[in-house]
Write a protein that binds this DNA or RNA. Structure first.
Lengths: 205, 205, 205, 205
DNA sequence: GATGAATGAGATTTCATTCAT
DNA sequence: AATGAATGAAATCTCATTCAT
């Protein structure tokens, strides 16, 4: 391993703390995770967590959600429709779904924590997530409207249509997060495709 | 208040313990709820819980899920299609959705616990819930097939169609359970109707 | 030892906790005394202190000062001049000083704590003590005025005279409390007598 | 700011450490003051204290008392009676009291520490202080004897007289140190004058 | 049936101190 | 001369559980 400067070491330790806390909180819950479990896993002394997060367990939880969440919100805002505008309908939908999926499942642990402990935090993150989802629905609805103008899909309530698509995806996501499946489909891509194809078949009729 | 027999007293206390534990576990999580919080809320001494549940906190959690869940599973199995067989399509779908909804939201706390603490229990309940949902999907698919035979809806993948309907409903349920909303629809009935109408419009095309 | 009822046992334990805490706080200071030291000394488990004083160390300190102090304030208010009104001057002064002395040195530990940790508490007790002392000075001044009317002592500023007497006593008390002596007089009574005699000799001139 | 040599820098830091420790110990007590609080206040790293005081917190406390105390003892020994020998009685007493007062209140923080933590140190300082006070009393008694020889004051027990004066002063000092006042006199000079005048009036009678 | 005093393991947190840089 | 990352012992406090009454 490359020689690390003092400062790099420090950053690395801080990062390891966050990462480990995330894993453990996701696995055993906030209350179910002793601080010891975190420091022991990174092979450090008991006190180190308080060196980086003077607020202790509470603070590491906050920082965890705050930092990771900010990144997520930022990324999803970047997701412009431009790239998909000229794709065929099917591919465009798959791209949208795939992107959202990637972004969520990418950090399943974080989502798990957000779901599990949504009463611990001040709900700020939960609210943001809600807003984010609604925005996404509207952006898909707009996309559908544009495609409708091109005659690719039939007339219908586009907002509801977008919501329908999102629901089918979310349903799958929740399963992954919570462990309670409605669909026992292990292959994400296959499921997404099947879902999109079916939905599209109805919209095009 | 009427004088209670020794036995009734006992049952009442046991029931209160379960009820209170359910509320608190749902609100603050299993680990986040001290046994004291439960006994104090029913104005009893510390030890009372161990009188009714010798296994302590663990046991009350088990019993809670076991008993409530069994009741739920039993109820949902009863839900036969017979009653809806002769209803018009729209009303039939609304009846199905309404029934499922009622059954779930009826005991939101239990669902919340099941979701939050799905790692605590031996997953047995989670698996059962999954199976239950799949069976429900298939039963709806069958219903759709029969209606298709009558010419009420178009040809399509009926399993996927049923899943689509369920997804839209579940999406709404999850929001209620978890507190992270995608749809900001406060009126359950209105949402269900809107959802069914839209879906039906696609199926009938 | 007589058989104690459950409730008596509880009160006894609570009392022992307060007593032991008082001793230790006086000896090693509030911060210098681990909670463990208290519980270990009364041969009880770690948690017992929190059973009786949910607010922990802080609360036991508060209660300690509050309860003991209230008793002291009450006692000193009882100390009427009636009993001394007909005593000869010398004996009357000795009685007053002796009584105050007794009341203070009676619970030296409490005084020590009050002095040491007067920044910890909200100064309420300190203020009360100040008021108490001022009242005492005025009451002695009144007594001197009455004796002056009888021609037993000369004309002078009676408030200052009373303060002078009190100062000489307090000086002695502080020494006992703090351990820094100005007068190396081990015999309390002898010191009080010497002090009173000297003062009186000046007042009678 | 002028450029400081390495050595001056070092001395300055050492001095700042002592000064800050003194303030904090006086305010929050020895046990109540984390080493961090000291180093942070002088804007230095955690380790700096150990560079100047290898013995750590303990040592800085020792040095603090030793150094400051030595200075105090030295100063009070210097206080000769020569300068006051030819002053009028009243002015002479005021000068003595004023000087002692100045010397004590000059470093109230140190006194406070000495009082608070008199169990921490090996009592050596406390004993020295006691001796110092007794010596002072005797020196005042001698002064009174000389004045008596000149016919300025009456015959009396001069040691007790000196002690009486000292007591009235100390009483005031303790109040300042401890925060528990018996006399609510905000003006030091006025209090000293009043006290001296009253005492003198008795002595001259 | 019910109580609540008591326990003690374990959780969170603090802090004096060390030491590589 | 100075830093601050790291330590780990110890302190405070919580809580599930037991049991004599």
């Amino acid at each position: 391993m490359a020689q690390l400067t003092r400062k790099e070491q420090a950053t690395a330790t801080r990062e390891k703390l966050l990462e480990t806390a995330k894993n453990l909180f996701a696995e055993m819950g906030y209350h179910g995770t002793p601080v010891r479990a975190i420091t022991r896993q990174i092979q450090k002394g008991d006190g180190i967590l308080y060196h980086y997060f003077p607020g202790g367990k509470q603070e590491i939880m906050s920082v965890l959600l705050r930092e990771s969440f900010e990144h997520r919100v930022y990324e999803i805002k970047q997701l412009t429709n431009e790239t998909i505008e000229h794709l065929p309908m099917r591919e465009a939908l798959l791209a949208i779904m795939g992107k959202i999926n990637e972004l969520f499942l990418d950090d399943l642990d974080l989502m798990r924590i957000l779901f599990r402990e949504n009463d611990l935090l001040d709900l700020e993150e939960a609210k943001q997530l809600s807003v984010m989802m609604s925005e996404r629905v509207e952006s898909i609805a707009d996309f559908l409207r544009r495609r409708h103008a091109k005659g690719e899909i039939r007339t219908m309530n586009f907002t509801l249509a977008a919501r329908q698509l999102m629901s089918m995806w979310m349903q799958f996501t929740y399963s992954a997060i919570i462990g309670i499946a409605v669909v026992s489909e292990p292959d994400v891509v296959a499921y997404l495709e099947e879902m999109v194809d079916f939905t599209l078949s109805l919209w095009q009729a």
